[in-house]
């Protein structure tokens, strides 16, 4: 049972990581590409880290919580770096796809 939960978490995490990179690969302009890595990849790594925390907690039979630290750090820094990259992209006036509503 425990193994199933771990396997599910790891698989979901890896799939979300892949989805984030697929977004990075196929979407047409920078601002749209930004969405994939900031959301999907962060959650994917979060799920993998959660699985790791559970695994080592059960293996050593004492709470192993330092993985939470990386997840927290990623969840705080991912939007910050996304914001800065978007700001930089707006600053150098990167082109956007034509159908963007209300372009800047």
């Amino acid at each position: 049972m425990f193994e199933w939960i771990l396997a599910g978490l790891i698989l979901i995490g890896a799939l979300f990581t892949l989805v984030g990179s697929i977004g990075l690969y196929k979407l047409p302009d920078f601002f749209m590409r930004l969405h994939g890595p900031t959301k999907a990849t962060t959650l994917g790594v979060g799920a993998i880290l959660l699985a790791s925390a559970l695994y080592f907690s059960f293996k050593t039979e004492s709470a192993s919580l330092h993985e939470i630290l990386i997840s927290l750090f990623l969840f705080i820094t991912a939007p910050v770096s996304a914001h800065l990259m978007a700001k930089a992209a707006m600053h150098i006036k990167l082109k956007q796809v034509k159908r963007t509503q209300n372009p800047q």
Binding site: T38, P79, H83, A86, K87, A89, M90
Partner: peptide, 15 residues
Amino acid sequence: LANTISLTPGTVSCD
């Protein structure tokens, strides 16, 4: 608020 917007449905705060 800006961070929350970036992490939630389909929106990224830019500037």
